[in-house]
Design a protein around this nucleic acid. Structure first.
Lengths: 195, 195
DNA sequence: AAACTGACAGATATTGACATCTGTCATCGC
DNA sequence: GCGATGACAGATGTCAATATCTGTCAGTTT
């Protein structure tokens, strides 16, 4: 008897297949073939193709989160942590878009039409940011009324650097300069009351 | 003899046709038909289809600019003007996306693959913003080193509210709240040195 | 001569017959 | 009984034949 078919194994096969063929070309039959089972079996673990695709993208988003968590509670001033965190977010996505374009396209497709999953992800990111900003307030670096609202504002204001809709611009030369400009302005805004 | 065929008349017919059929469906032959001429004549005024499409979108962008210029030099504090200007920019695009989706799609297509035209447009917008911010500095409302860099930062940070790539999000309920959050943060950043 | 036409070549889009895919479910084997 | 199967209907995708489009240009009209 072969190893039992689990949702986890399906997810792994789906991710491999998506990476190989891209979101437009992978079929449920392809995923089943990679597992050596009939496609009907895949439907035992996921209600439909969209759910499978979303689950793969969610897994990927969790991996992005995992890279960010350590920075949320790292050493150093809140300013430094905020800066590293934002850079890590941008860099991770940029790298992924370049190195793993097919999986990135899957994530982009998710972002475009499965808004809920993305909202949850953005909430998670905002939570981490709020934590850093909150620390900054305690340490006297920042002064904001509501750290969570400020976190959302920072995320929105840096959309261009992490939202997949802007991936095409990520290879342009002026991008880093643009980031510096936005960073400078946001930092002033957060620290505003302190000067 | 009928009225002479001018680039202007071609542009008008092209805009009407694009509005009717959308950027994906309008052909040069359609535009010529609307004018009652052969499609060869259209090529007397525009070197190719892309140039015609770009010219239509540029005309539209100039109309957006025309709505913004008055606000650049209006009465009131720089803060008020900045706020109205950003609102006008967002509102105009949002309205256009809703009321004239086919023309908006044309503009979006332009933004996606004719980057130069858009860069010029963004420079124009940044110029207006720099003017307002500059005034704010003179009047003691703002304190920034380089108004033009600050202007670019403000534009980038508000991408989500005026970039057509985000048009799908413009009908979501939380959008205005998000704008308020970003606005509050940017304003603090600009006014930072003043408190 | 300047403005326009329409036939043309090559590129792109549309069509419709056919193949594959998605999602369901009665049935099978362990 | 439980997980897996494979046949199935309807939806979606593919492909090659066909039609339309883009861009050019020699020729016509005014």
């Amino acid at each position: 008897m072969t190893e039992a078919l689990t949702a986890e194994r399906v997810l792994e096969a789906a991710e491999d297949t998506l990476r190989r063929f891209g979101p437009g070309k992978t079929t449920v039959v392809d995923v089943a073939r990679a597992l050596g089972v009939s496609h009907g079996s895949v439907y035992r673990h996921f209600p439909n193709k969209a759910a499978l695709r979303d689950a793969v993208a969610e897994r990927w988003l969790e991996r992005v989160n995992a890279r960010l968590w350590p920075l949320t509670t790292a050493d150093g001033s809140a300013t430094e942590r905020l800066r590293s965190w934002l850079e890590q977010l941008s860099t991770t996505k940029r790298l992924m878009a370049r190195e793993d374009p097919e999986l990135f396209a899957t994530y982009h497709a998710l972002a475009t039409d499965s808004r809920d999953v993305i909202r949850v992800h953005l909430d998670t990111l905002a939570g981490m940011l709020a934590r850093i900003i909150s620390d900054g307030v305690s340490q006297g670096e920042f002064e904001v009324e509501d750290p969570h609202r400020a976190a959302r504002a920072v995320l929105t204001a840096t959309t261009r650097f992490h939202n997949p809709a802007h991936a095409a611009e990520w290879e342009e030369p002026g991008l880093d300069a643009d980031f510096e400009e936005v960073w400078a302005l946001l930092l002033l805004g957060l620290a505003s009351g302190r000067r």
